[in-house]
């Protein structure tokens, strides 16, 4: 990075450190922080969407849809997330390729499963094997997002399902009395009001989601814990210009600080959001706000 970094062996401590912390490898660590944050930013709304879908399905009046919604929430919630991450990405990837294969190569005669191999036609490959590396990476990133969203969507679904039932009945009855249709009642009364009941659970889920990011490396995304372990491990002078002993302790201490700060910021933000959502609601919190203002 800096011009004086060409021969690290002769540098003073401070300069050595500044060179060390700006190697290409450390840049990968810094990039991974951004990747993790972006992934969280995309996963959270996606998981919420999955959860919303799951909750609506679980409330459905059509039995098969209801069973689907309920079993999605129950099964995914019952399994440790790590189990999903260990085999789900490959399964998802194969499922996509299989579907594309069926559509794109209808006259392909060879079997898709040849022994252990999973072989689809070239055109069905996801991404195409001729596409540049960044396409592969982006694809991997989105498969990771999807896996996270499916897993955490089940938890969100459970929370939203509860929140929908927590909206006071009189609110819905009043809506009916005013002649609103079922659909109107759902979108105009139930959905706007359920958030205040869902928020404590969703805040907790967000915290859990943050802390699930160390498992990202299982999904093929090199996250901060992966790099901290890789960078902190003992390095011998044969393979690096910056040999050092077992420094994992320091890297993990850095991780700890990162996660604590991130959690704290989230807490403050969510607390504000709760204040905002409580306004004008028919709950004790809302009542307290009203009284304080009066």
């Amino acid at each position: 990075m800096f011009s004086f970094c060409t021969d690290p062996d002769v540098l003073g401590q401070f300069q050595w450190l500044s060179c060390y912390l700006t190697t290409g490898k450390h840049m990968s660590l810094y990039v991974s922080v951004v990747v993790v944050l972006v992934l969280l930013a995309i996963t959270a709304p996606t998981a919420l969407l999955f959860g919303f879908g799951g909750a609506v399905a679980a409330r459905s009046r059509i039995p098969p849809v209801r069973w689907f919604g309920k079993s999605y929430i129950a099964i995914v919630r019952g399994v440790p997330d790590i189990a999903f991450f260990l085999f789900f990405v490959i399964a998802l990837d194969q499922a996509f390729e299989w579907m594309r294969h069926k559509v794109l190569c209808p006259d392909w005669t060879d079997p898709i499963r040849q022994g252990n191999d999973f072989v689809v036609c070239q055109a069905a490959k996801l991404p195409l094997s001729s596409s540049p590396q960044w396409v592969h990476e982006t694809y991997g990133f989105f498969v990771a997002v999807l896996t996270f969203a499916i897993v955490f969507g089940a938890f969100a679904g459970n929370i939203l399902f509860g929140a929908m039932r927590a909206v006071p009945r009189p609110q819905l009855e009043t809506a009916e009395a005013y002649g609103l249709s079922r659909r109107q009642t759902f979108w105009r009364i139930l959905v706007p009001q359920m958030w205040v009941f869902a928020l404590p659970g969703l805040s907790n889920l967000w915290m859990v989601l943050i802390k699930a990011t160390p498992l990202l490396f299982l999904l093929g995304v090199e996250d901060i814990v992966y790099w901290a372990r890789e960078l902190g491990g003992t390095k011998t002078s044969r393979f690096t210009d910056y040999p050092h002993g077992d420094w994992r302790m320091y890297y993990f201490a850095g991780l700890l600080v990162f996660y604590l700060i991130f959690t704290r910021i989230s807490e403050i933000f969510l607390e504000r959001l709760m204040q905002r959502l409580t306004r004008g609601q028919a709950t004790t919190g809302g009542e307290a706000q009203r009284k304080a203002a009066a």
């Binding site: 802390k211 699930a212 996660y259 604590l260 959690t263």
Partner: peptide
């Protein structure tokens, strides 16, 4: 705060 704010991964390590 410390135990809720950090991943179990990191806690096991420490």
């Amino acid at each position: 705060f410390v135990f809720r704010g950090s991943p179990l991964f990191v806690q096991f390590f420490f």
